Simulated scan of single mutants.
Amino acid sequence: MTNSGWDIAMWRIDAKYDLPQFVASSLVRKIAANHFHLPATDRHRFQPIPDDVIARIEDIVRQAYIEAGEDVGGDILRAHLWRQALDGRRAMIASGELLTPTEFTRRIGVTENRLTQLLDSYSVFAVEVDGVEYVPAFLSDPSLNRKRLQAICQIIMPAPPLSRLDFLTAQNGTLGDRTPLDMLDDDGDYKVLERAAAAWAAEWSRTSVRVYDGLHETEPIDVSPLYTASAEIDPRRPLWKRASEALHAQGYQWPLGPYMDARQFTLFVERQTAGDGASTPEACVQISVDGEDIRIRVVAASGTTLRTETMPAGNHRSLIDIAKRVIAYLTNATRA
């Protein structure tokens, strides 16, 4: 018979601590029912037990349920990591590492309207803790090159605020085990930091191009694409440049070929943010090859026709070569 998480936790608590069975049982049930933390409202019921012992018992219960296979989908571990992160952010508030907007504006000597402008331009950012927004204190540090720091904040905008906070304050192997905050003064260091920040920011967004046989205005759900290419690219770059890079970059490409000789096919371009299960459709391009000509019909994600154009096919005959040529044409047309 398989032991339950409750059984394993009870045995381990009994082996480690001299607690009455009814007390240990009550602790295990309350901890397990509250994302593996004893509710603050119940702490007074176990007042004789020191805080450090309660914390160790919480760990015992959590590990017991995981070992018993009762962590369906990793929910226990995710809840634990989320709670750890939340506790860490609360500690940052207590230590003054996160500031209220009012305190932040006082420190840098600006109005609330100016702070709103800085937030809207991504020159600074705020993180949310318990439903309240706080601004990292280092963004107000007069010893740092604020102009360069704000420029880096703008570069890393695609990432979630908490990830931006970690990027700016954590040691980074690509930066010689220094933090970005250590690289703001020296011109050479700053150029290295700019490149590293741009590369890191691009990892938070993926642009994909999928090719389907035939002409479509919405992406088919009952057939597989003829070809898929995707790459991690900064979402602020122009649409057609991102699509072109996805087709040319050495990222994900499938299948590797050979490809069928389709005379009519459709490209769908979409963007997806890391951690977001839903993707954002950005464009649909219908392509028809007729002799020496390629007819292009560009459709917005909403289904609205933007334009229909004709371009020479040239020597490009394969499906992927034609797709690359069409995207290059659209890139140049947009630039013009």
Rank of each mutant, 00 (worst) to 15 (best):
D130K: 12
F104H: 11
L168T: 13
G176P: 03
A159Q: 03
L98R: 01
R210Q: 12
D189P: 08
P158N: 06
E112L: 10
L139I: 04
L181W: 04
F104A: 05
T102D: 03
V209T: 06
A159S: 02
P158T: 02
A170I: 13
V192D: 05
S121K: 15
P160G: 10
A137R: 00
C153L: 04
L139R: 01
S205H: 13
D187V: 08
K147G: 14
T207F: 05
T116Y: 15
L118E: 01
S208H: 09
N113S: 14
A197R: 01
D187E: 11
V135C: 01
D186V: 08
Y190W: 05
L119R: 12
L193Y: 01
V132G: 11
S163G: 13
P180K: 08
A197V: 05
V110D: 02
G173C: 15
S208F: 04
L181Q: 04
T207W: 02
S163N: 13
L181Y: 03
E203Y: 13
L139Y: 03
V124A: 00
P136T: 07
Y190D: 04
R195M: 12
G109H: 13
S140R: 03
M157S: 15
P142H: 08
T207A: 09
D141G: 00
L144Y: 00
P160A: 13
L115F: 06
K147M: 13
A151G: 09
Q150T: 14
I108V: 10
G109K: 14
T207I: 06
R106L: 10
A126V: 03
D141N: 00
Q117Y: 15
L175I: 10
D186Y: 07
Q154G: 11
D141Q: 02
A170Q: 12
G176Y: 08
L165T: 09
A197K: 04
S121V: 12
A159E: 01
T111S: 05
S163I: 11
V110E: 06
S140Y: 00
R178S: 08
R178F: 03
L118P: 00
T169M: 14
T169Q: 14
T105P: 06
P142T: 05
L99S: 01
N172S: 07
L99H: 03
D182N: 11
R195Q: 14
N113Q: 13
V129M: 02
L149Y: 07
R148H: 02
V110W: 05
S205M: 14
E128Q: 09
L139A: 06
A201Q: 02
G173K: 15
S123Q: 06
A126C: 07
D189K: 09
D120I: 11
R195S: 12
V110N: 10
I156E: 01
A170H: 13
N172D: 12
R114E: 09
S205E: 13
D189F: 10
